[in-house]
Write a protein that binds this DNA or RNA. Structure first.
Ligand code: SF4
Ligand code: SF4
Lengths: 151, 151
DNA sequence: TTTAATTCGGATAAATTTGTCCGAATTAAA
DNA sequence: TTTAATTCGGACAAATTTATCCGAATTAAA
């Protein structure tokens, strides 16, 4: 009954974020990341992650290349302009920003409840954070941690 | 694949919050709220809401009374001291405050990524907001909206 | 040209969350 | 004491999310 876990984003989205960060890292190094690479690196289920990557490829956030030496990549020059918000949006949509944070339907919009302002503030901070955080920042700042995990 | 809805809390929790606000309102008026009352008022599935209410009763957030004229109630003097956080905690736990907001396992805690501070800030604001918002505030401020819906 | 490495896409399965059904227990009122 | 209104609790069902399987398509390299 009581939830196991309440996370900000779906599992798909979490895997997506992690995967894209890893792909970005590799791409900065002129390398592609194969599905196997990725799932080994970010510790996620292979087939499920494949679906997530397909979706990100359809959304043009990453590029996929079939065949030997294929894999996923991101154009180097795009890595700085791609923001976290785009990944989240492609996988979870933007519903986290919409509607009452308490899930209330019953609400007098003219006289908002005491929580309303704080809620909208929190959500808009979340949005700003996602919109202002580039893949580049994440890829470079997390590089140490990731490379550590690799060996 | 793409999520229908990403909400801050589970459905159970949303119903719980709405139900408790309604019960508080009634209790302030010396009345009990029956399950039927509640689900009619907050527009939620009856049997499911019953489970949620049971859980809240077990957590001593509300009191349940069986038999004719039974229902759910909250001691008047408690309404001001019960905070939103208690309801959320009873139904969704506190996992929304824990772990990486991006769902990353791979993380070098010594050199947090650029998002870390903003994330912890956002979460702590959410927590503070939930901890500082009493049922009384909500019940009284939402009264207009709720009574409007009733007729 | 053949082989092998890879992504793609559809079908399906497992897990979790959300929702329903129904009889048992309790209790106030008739 | 009987009845009826109510919550309780267990079993079950539906919907959604998460995860797996496998063959098809693509393509680089042998
Ligand atoms: S005023 Fe309160 S109840 Fe209404 S949408 Fe804002 S937070 Fe939700
Ligand atoms: S530093 Fe970044 S990756 Fe690590 S826990 Fe904080 S937000 Fe998550």
């Amino acid at each position: 009954m009581h939830r196991k876990y309440t996370t900000m984003f779906s599992k798909a989205c979490e895997y997506g974020i992690r995967a894209v960060i890893y792909i970005a890292q590799k791409s900065l190094n002129e390398e592609r990341a194969s599905l196997k690479d990725i799932t080994a690196e970010i510790d996620s289920p292979e087939a499920f992650t494949a679906k997530v990557l397909q979706q990100l490829a359809r959304a043009k956030i990453i590029n996929s290349v079939k065949g030997p030496n294929g894999g996923f990549e991101i154009k180097k020059e795009d890595i700085d302009s791609i923001k976290l918000s785009e990944i989240v949006n492609a996988l979870d949509g933007d519903s986290i920003y919409k509607g009452c944070g308490l899930g209330l339907k019953v609400c007098n919009a003219n006289e908002p409840c005491p929580v309303h302002d704080k809620f909208t503030t929190i959500r808009s901070e979340l949005r700003k954070m996602l919109e202002n955080t580039s893949l580049f920042e994440l890829a470079t700042s997390l590089e140490t941690g990731l490379t550590y995990l690799k060996r």
